[in-house]
Simulated assay, not measured.
Amino acid sequence: MAVYTIKKAEKAPLASKGVLLWLRVNLFSDVTNSLFTLLGCYFIYLIVPPLINWMIIDATWSGTKEEIINDGARWIFIFEKFDQFIYGFYPEALHWRPNLAALISIFFILSMNFISNLKIKIGLILVYPIISFVLISGGFGLEIIPTEKWGGLMLTILVAAVGIIVSFPIGIVLALGRQSKMPIVRTLCIAFIEFIRGVPLITILFMASVILPLFFHDGIEFDKLLRALIGITLFQAAYIAEVVRGGLQAIPRGQYEAADSLGLSYWQGMILIILPQALKISIPNLVGSFISLFKDTTLVLIIGLFDVLAMVSLTNSDTNWLGFEVEGYVFVTMIYWVFCFSMSQYSKSIERKYNTEH
């Protein structure tokens, strides 16, 4: 008679689960991968500890510049000039107005994720820019602040936001016009897109600043910031048009035929069937264009507008704070990274939300 013994279950080897498994699969899967991993760790060892020492451990966080004794970062310069970096020359007593506009912007972005009613979304999109502009510029009982005093991070966000929001619908119209069956419309859209994409943004800004006022009568004041916004919007619209056109070309022909079979008009089919799919496909490229625009806002300096990077250069000319430009540029670098990384992560969340491949 056979006797069976039940063996006690043994634990799985440590190398087949958890962190050790991840390390073995991703970093030490073969000899070449292991060598590159060790080489990368060596470079991290050379770069990260000194950087942490300079930025945190040996840094000067308080006091005056005469009391600096360490060789680390002198962040007191950032604290001293912080208001200029954020608001430019905007009156200090009225900082609550751009702050309130920023809070409204955050509420607007979050509300877009939770509101499903299209009419409410369109209403918010139309009302939000007006409220923000009145808060920052003035009017309706608020003191009017000329755009010459706008600057810093506030101006950077404003230029980027206007460029993104306004150029998006214009780019869609240009993309549809480029695919139109009407020769005149198609030719005009192609000419505009190819001309704008064939010249750098700095040229467009010069044209908007110098040539655009020539189209108006003498005595008409044309705001410098408005000129820059028009140039940036037209420039960005051309690139968005090509991104959207790529999304439209990726839609199978059967989708167009399905819209026709339902008896939908051209615009009904585009708005209800074609464009939602094309825009979903184009999300990564669209966000890439928006990130590029956010970084290109630094070019407004050439027409006399002081964004956050320009404010750092300007404050470095202060004779009382000479030699602190490194800290200023590191601070601006971190600001740009935070905003660009946040935009990238937000786009990924949108992709996951509208993913229909399942």
Rank of each mutant, 00 (worst) to 15 (best):
L14I: 14
S16T: 15
L20G: 02
F28P: 09
S29R: 02
S34T: 15
L39A: 14
G40P: 11
C41W: 12
F43K: 04
I44S: 13
Y45W: 10
L51E: 04
I57R: 12
I57D: 12
I76A: 02
I76Q: 09
F77N: 02
F77I: 01
F85L: 14
Y87I: 02
G88M: 11
F89N: 15
F89Q: 14
P91D: 00
W96H: 00
W96L: 01
A101Q: 11
A101R: 13
I109F: 14
M112Y: 10
F114C: 02
K119Q: 10
I120N: 04
I122N: 07
G123L: 07
L126N: 10
I130G: 04
F140Y: 13
W150V: 09
L155S: 03
T156R: 00
V159F: 05
V162A: 10
G163N: 00
G163I: 01
I164A: 02
I170N: 06
G177I: 01
I184S: 03
F192T: 06
E194G: 10
F195T: 15
G198D: 03
G198S: 12
V199N: 08
P200R: 08
P200C: 03
T203R: 12
L205I: 13
M207C: 13
A208N: 10
S209C: 05
S209L: 02
L212N: 00
P213C: 02
F216H: 01
H217A: 13
D223M: 05
K224V: 07
L229A: 00
Q236I: 01
Y239R: 06
Y239H: 07
A241V: 00
G247F: 07
L248K: 04
P252V: 00
Y256T: 07
A258H: 10
A259E: 01
A259S: 13
S265L: 00
I271A: 08
I274Y: 05
S282T: 04
I283N: 05
G288L: 06
G288P: 10
S289Q: 15
S289H: 09
S292Q: 10
S292C: 09
F294I: 09
F294M: 11
F294V: 11
L305I: 10
L305E: 07
V308T: 08
V312W: 11
T315E: 09
S317P: 05
S317Y: 11
T319N: 14
W321Y: 12
L322V: 09
L322A: 12
F324T: 14
E325K: 04
V326P: 06
V330Q: 06
I335V: 10
Y336V: 02
S342I: 06
M343K: 07
Y346E: 01
I350L: 13
K353N: 03
N355F: 14
N355Q: 15
N355M: 14
T356W: 14
